[in-house]
């Protein structure tokens, strides 16, 4: 029997190529330089603390005037309506885009990337920018907010619906194709049923996300509770602002709780 020699273990930094070493150093330099440029200095923090405390002091107690609360309540309802209808339209719009862009499912072959690009564009433009665009295009108010949420949802659901469709089981798809089903038949018969749990989960996340972003859309005039918040800050009515912030907190928390429950129910 031949003598077996155990080779020495690989060097400690054998996995680190010169290139990755250079990149690592560059990244560290970037972080350190940025720290100096934009992070709060100890002095600023020291000054900011008491000012923050003063602001909080002026916010208390929250304004609980019934007439004001009623107006806030109506605005909250409007905010939820923006989120709900925006998500609904976004979901409806997402299905054709997901179908057209999902690998192995799309009927557009090499042109599928065009649809994927539209979805990416909808996603990469931030919601406040969409809101500014729609406020300029169709005017101040809730409709601009709804359109914004729709684009936001398209960017989110369009992508994850497509991924769910791509991940649908291969075998039933092939089976239905062998049976002479059309592409659309395969989609409806095999792909969507298989992707459904993932599609539902994505939709619930989209709704949650929509509530959160519809809250701030009012800052740029696209309707909802954010408008009240902006007005309160602009007029230095900090007691009203704190009521609104509390209301937002409750709504977003409630929404997360509700979608969590729904997700658990549907599992």
């Amino acid at each position: 029997m031949a003598e077996r020699r155990i080779p020495a273990p690989p060097g400690r930094f054998a996995g680190l190529s010169p290139l990755s070493f250079v990149l690592l150093v560059a990244a560290a330099a970037l972080v350190i330089a940025s720290l100096g440029d934009v992070s709060p200095s100890p002095q600023r923090l020291a000054e900011g603390g008491p000012r923050m405390a003063r602001l909080v002091g002026r916010m208390l107690p929250p304004d609980l005037d019934p007439a004001f609360l009623a107006r806030i309540g109506l605005r909250i309802v409007e905010t939820l309506q923006i989120a709900l209808i925006g998500t609904l339209f976004g979901v409806i719009l997402s299905f054709p885009f997901a179908y057209a862009s999902a690998r192995g499912v799309t009927p557009f072959g090499p042109f599928a990337f065009l649809f994927k690009a539209v979805v990416s564009f909808a996603r990469t433009v931030p919601d406040l920018v969409w809101a500014l665009i729609f406020v300029s295009a169709i005017g101040l108010g809730a409709v601009a907010g709804t359109m914004t949420i729709m684009m936001d949802t398209l960017g989110f659901c369009g992508r994850f619906y497509a991924e769910a469709m791509e991940d649908a089981e291969e075998e039933p798809r092939e089976a239905l194709t062998a049976f002479g089903a059309s592409r659309f038949g395969v989609l409806m018969g095999a792909v969507i049923p298989d992707a459904m749990p993932s599609i539902i989960a994505t939709t619930l996340f989209a709704l949650e996300k929509a509530v959160r972003s519809s809250v701030v859309l009012g800052l740029v005039g696209a309707g909802g509770i954010g408008q009240e918040l902006k007005t309160a800050f602009d007029l230095f009515q900090y007691e009203k602002a704190s009521t609104i912030i509390l209301a937002i907190f409750i709504v977003v928390l409630g929404m997360e709780w509700a979608t969590d429950r729904l997700r658990r129910l549907l599992r």
Partner: peptide, 25 residues
């Protein structure tokens, strides 16, 4: 009619729905 190595049924659908897929042509 085609029968596959692994049954290739759509798991989340009912047995009846799966049989009906035979009519997709």
């Amino acid at each position: 009619g085609y029968v596959f190595q692994r049954h290739a049924l759509v798991k989340r659908r009912t047995v009846l729905s799966n049989v009906l897929h035979g009519f997709l042509h």
